[in-house]
Nucleic acid binder design. Structure first.
Lengths: 369, 369
DNA sequence: CGCCCCAATGTATGCGCTTACAATCGCTCT
DNA sequence: AGAGCGATTGTAAGCGCATACATTGGGGCG
C-alpha cells in the first residue's frame, strides 16, 4: 500500500500522457490497441485504481445513490464491542445456552422490512450502473449524517419520517430525492408507496366474511405512524361498509412490537374475546396469538386474527397468519428507477408510484372446516 | 435544484473568502462568531451541501467504508420491474392469494445472514464517523463493481469468497482490506472469523450425549463452502472422539437450501432413520424436519436434529431447532473496528479476530422427557 | 509527390474543497 | 502613540481525473 498510484504514474510508466490513460479507461475504442495494451499493463503493474473522488469531481456526478432510513432498533444502545481490547484472544470460542428462548435475537420487524428494501435498491442500482451508499437516521441533532451522504451521491432515497421536512427540502435543492412508503402529501418529490388503506379494507372484508357474530377488535400502531393511520382508515372503511358502527369496535393501541400485541390480547381476554382481531402489523398479531394460545383461546376457532406486512414469521406461526405482504424488494427497486429517471429528466413532473400489495389468506383468519 | 451552490457562492454571499467558509464547516472555533454566523446564514440560504468528491479529493480520504459480499440469490434473474412503463397506474392496488404457501417469498438464508452483518457494520461505521457503501458480487467478468467501490472508499470489508484472490490482492495494494468469515489463511489481511469447527464439535457432543444408539447422519453444504468444510471437520472430530468410525457416518450433501435438506431426509427415511442428524445449516435442518414430519418420523423422539446459524426460523419451528447462533451483528462491527484500526496504524501486524458462537440447545436435539 | 482529412495523442484547464503560508486586524503593553 | 502578538482572514497551490481543443502522423487521392 505504498503510495497510491495515480494516472500520472500510469502515464509515465506507459510513456503516454494522462489523457491517454484516462481514455483507455473510459473510451477504450478511442485508443490504438497497441497503446491500450501498454497502458493496461501499467495499470496492472501499479495496482492502479482510479480515485472516485477525483472522478466524481471532474465528471460532476458520483455514480452513487444514497438510501437513508430511520433506525428503529435503538442500536445506539447496542452492547459495547471492542475487538481491539486486550484479552480478546482468550475469550472462549463458544458459549452454550441450555434453555434457549425462542425469541433470542429476534430483530425489530422494521429492520427486516428495511433489509429487503435495501436489497431491492441495491439490485436495481447495480442494474442501472450505480453503487449504493446507506445511512441510518440516529439521534443526530445536527443532521450531519444525512447531509454527509447527500454530498456524496447523485440522488437520495429517503424513508418517510426519517428526515425532518426542512432538512429534506434543503437537500432536494441539491439532488433529486425520492420518498419511500410515506403518505403522498402535496410535495414535489417523487414517491413510492403502497395501497395500505385499500388492502386493509379488503383484508378486513375477508375476515369479517369468515367471522361469526361477535365483537370486532383492532390493535393499532403508534400515534405517529402514517402507515398505522392508513391501515386504521382502511379497516374502518370495511367495518362501516359492513354496517357496524365504528364506535362499537374495540380499539387498542400498540407500538408494533410483539409484546404490545401480547398485552393487547390479554386485555381482550379480560373483557371478553372478540370474534375478529385485526392488528396493524404482523408482530402484534403474532404476540396476540401467543397470548390467546396461552389462555386457551383458540385461533381461528374462537377468534380470527390478521396481521400486516408479510414477515417470514407470519408464515411459520401456528396457525399460519393471514396478512398482507409488502412488496419490499420492489419498493427499493422502484425508488431507484424513479431516481434514475429524474437524473435523466430533471424537470419531469413529480411522480408517485403505487405498488400492489399481496393479501395472503392463511389459517388464522379462516372459518374452521 | 438550480445550480448547486459551491463554497464560492457561499463565500460571495457572506462577503468572505472560500477559506473562511471551509473553516466554518471544519473548524468552527477558528472563526470569529460574527463571521461564522454570517457564513452559516449563507449556507442555509443557498442550501449549500459540500461536495463529497471535492472534499475527498482535497483531504485524500473519503470517510467511506465499503462492504462487499457475494450475491447468492441469483437476483439477476429477478422478475422485470419497470415502474416507469405505461399502464403502471392501472395496476390493481392489491392481489389476493387464497392458498398462501408458507414459504412464500422466503429469502435465501445467506442473505439474512448478510443483512445482519450489514446492520452491524453500519452501526459501527456510524460510531466511528464513517459512512457505508455496499456492493454485491454478481456475474461481473470485469470485476468492475468491486474496483468501482474500492476507488471510492478508505477501506474495504469483503466477505470470503466474494472476490477472487488476485483482484483482492490488487485492491489491498491501494486500501486496507478486512476479510470476513473466511478461513484464516496465511495472507496478510485482517480477518474476522468464528470458531465454526470448535462449536460444531461441542454441538455434536451434546447431541450424541442425548441420543440413543443408532446411526449418525450428516448433511453437508456445497463442496466449495469453507464454512461447510469447517463444520464437517468439527463434526467429524466429535464423532471420532465418541469412538465412532467416521466411515460409519451417513454423509449426504446439500446446498444449504431447505429443499436440499428435505431431499436428504427423504433419502434417510428410505435407508432407515438415524438416531442423530447433524445438518451444516439451519435451512437444511428445517427442511429435514419437515420431511420427517410428513413421513411420520418424530423429532426429537425418533431422531435428534441440529442446525447451524441461528436463524429466526429455527426458533419458530416445531420442534424448536437446536443450533449455533452466529454473532452476525458483531461480525460486521468487528470488521469495521479492524478497518478503523488499520487506517490509523497502516503498518500494524495483520490481525485475526475470532468471535464466539452461541450454542442454542432447544427441543430438536433433546431426549424427550 | 503534395495536399486534405481523419485518427491518435498531447496540452491545458477546471471540477469544489482543504490547508500551508502570508497578510491583516485588533489589542495590550510600555 | 508605537511596537509586538496572537487571532482572523485571505491567497494560492494542489488533490486526481475528464475533456475541449490543439497538435501530430499517416493514408488516400489527385
Amino acid at each position: 500500500m505504498s503510495k497510491k498510484a495515480t494516472v500520472y504514474d500510469v502515464a509515465d510508466r506507459a510513456g503516454v500522457s494522462i489523457a491517454t490513460v484516462s481514455r483507455v479507461l473510459r473510451q477504450p475504442d478511442a485508443v490504438r490497441p497497441a497503446t491500450r495494451e501498454r497502458v493496461l499493463d501499467s495499470v496492472t503493474a501499479l495496482g492502479y485504481v482510479p480515485s472516485g473522488s477525483a472522478r466524481g469531481l471532474a465528471e460532476r456526478r458520483t455514480g452513487v445513490l444514497g438510501l437513508y432510513f430511520p433506525g428503529f432498533d435503538a442500536s445506539e444502545d447496542a452492547p459495547v464491542l471492542d475487538v481491539l481490547a486486550d484479552g480478546q484472544a482468550e475469550a472462549p470460542p463458544f458459549t452454550v445456552e441450555k434453555t434457549a428462548p425462542s425469541d433470542a435475537g429476534a430483530p425489530h420487524p422494521t429492520m427486516l422490512f428495511l433489509d429487503e428494501v435495501l436489497r431491492g435498491a441495491e439490485l436495481e442500482a447495480w442494474k442501472q450502473g450505480f453503487v449504493l451508499m446507506i445511512g441510518v437516521g440516529r439521534d443526530d441533532p445536527t443532521r450531519e449524517t444525512v447531509r454527509d451522504i447527500a454530498g456524496r451521491v447523485d440522488g437520495l432515497m429517503v424513508l418517510a419520517q426519517s428526515v425532518p421536512d426542512d432538512v429534506l427540502a434543503r437537500l432536494a435543492q441539491r439532488i433529486p430525492v425520492v420518498v419511500l412508503s410515506g403518505p403522498a402529501r402535496g410535495d414535489s418529490y417523487d414517491h413510492v408507496t403502497v395501497s395500505n388503506a385499500e388492502a386493509m379494507t379488503e383484508l378486513t372484508r375477508l375476515v369479517l366474511a369468515e367471522a361469526d357474530a361477535g365483537e370486532i377488535a383492532f390493535i393499532g400502531g403508534p400515534e405517529d405512524s402514517p402507515d398505522g393511520a392508513q391501515r386504521w382508515d382502511g379497516f374502518a372503511a370495511a367495518v362501516t361498509e359492513a354496517g357496524v358502527a365504528i364506535d362499537d369496535v374495540i380499539v387498542l393501541r400498540g407500538d408494533f412490537t410483539r409484546a404490545s400485541g401480547h398485552a393487547a390480547a390479554e386485555q381482550l381476554i379480560d373483557r371478553g374475546v372478540p370474534s375478529v382481531l385485526v392488528a396493524a402489523n404482523d408482530q402484534m398479531a403474532l404476540g396476540a396469538i401467543e397470548a390467546f394460545s396461552s389462555a386457551g383461546v383458540r385461533v381461528p376457532d374462537d377468534v380470527r386474527v390478521t396481521g400486516f406486512d408479510g414477515l417470514e414469521a407470519a408464515a411459520l406461526s401456528r396457525p399460519t397468519l393471514t396478512t398482507v405482504r409488502q412488496p419490499m424488494i420492489d419498493l427499493g427497486r422502484a425508488a431507484v428507477q424513479l431516481l434514475a429517471r429524474r437524473l435523466e429528466q430533471p424537470d419531469a413532473d413529480p411522480m408517485t408510484v403505487r405498488l400492489p400489495l399481496q393479501i395472503l389468506v392463511r389459517e388464522s383468519s379462516q372459518r374452521p372446516a
